[in-house]
């Protein structure tokens, strides 16, 4: 059965609107309407994503053009205000030094520093902490979270991307390691950016390859310590 048989002409039209949006031919109002649907309809967003992937190889034809040297500092000022230093100087202290101490000189030396940056063996930097990231999602829902697990601090940072919890229900986070039963990491607090702290024993059990899952549960969490509601999002932890 084809997609069109399954969903009728409406779905086919949606697919064409998605294609036209990605191609870029729609008028302003039509584009704005499509953009709103991407935000609110997971199915439509997926159609758009499929077309982005299909047409993406054409983007090879865009030539690289170096932006003006001051463009980045304007962006930084817009985002962070004037004269603010980077927040994580630990790993990148030398870069932070350059940026903080000698902004003007840095611009003058852009070509030289650019060379240095380019040669940084980024993937081989010794990390002072072990962190894992998981994108939590499910095809049947629009619930999306970005989860970052810091094994040193035994902290799970959750960034809420989309999808509301049903009225009168909570989201609960689970870790699944191999064939073991899911272990509750607790109810996810409401908010766009929240943290869940883990006990030492729980933290030790989580490693790359573990799966994080989110279920809906009665308020306050699963009554018996095992998932009782449907899985609304899940994803593998990958090493960053």
């Amino acid at each position: 059965m084809t997609v069109a048989d399954e969903h009728g002409p409406e779905r086919r039209d949606d697919d064409l609107v998605a294609a036209e949006y990605v191609l870029g031919v729609l008028a302003a109002e039509e584009r704005a309407a499509a953009a709103r649907r991407i935000e609110t309809e997971a199915g439509f967003a997926r159609l758009v994503e499929d077309w982005e992937t299909r047409l993406a190889p054409m983007a090879d034809a865009y030539e690289k053009v170096e932006p003006p040297a001051n463009a980045k500092s304007i962006i930084d000022t817009r985002l962070f205000g004037a004269g603010t230093a980077a927040e994580r100087p630990d790993l990148w202290s030398s870069l932070a030094f350059w940026r903080g101490a000698a902004m003007v000189a840095l611009v003058a030396l852009a070509a030289y520093v650019g060379l240095t940056y380019t040669n940084l063996p980024f993937g081989n930097q010794p990390l002072q902490e072990q962190r894992f990231v998981a994108s939590l999602a499910h095809d049947d829902t629009d619930v999306r979270y970005l989860a970052v697990y810091d094994s040193t601090k035994r902290d799970v940072a959750l960034s809420h991307v989309s999808g509301a919890r049903p009225d009168g229900r909570d989201f609960e986070l689970w870790a699944i390691e191999g064939d073991n039963p899911p272990v509750s990491l607790g109810v996810i607090p409401v908010g766009s950016s929240v943290h869940v702290a883990l006990s030492e024993a729980l933290g030790a059990a989580i490693d790359a390859g573990a799966v994080f899952a989110i279920t809906t549960e009665p308020l306050g969490g699963s009554p018996d310590g095992t998932p009782t509601g449907p899985v609304v999002a899940l994803g593998d932890l990958r090493d960053i």
């Binding site: 865009y62 030539e63 690289k64 170096e66 932006p67 463009a71 980045k72 650019g114 380019t118």
Partner: peptide, 11 residues
Amino acid sequence: YRHTSAKLFGV
């Protein structure tokens, strides 16, 4: 930014 801005500026 350093590694992608030239492409995106081209766009």
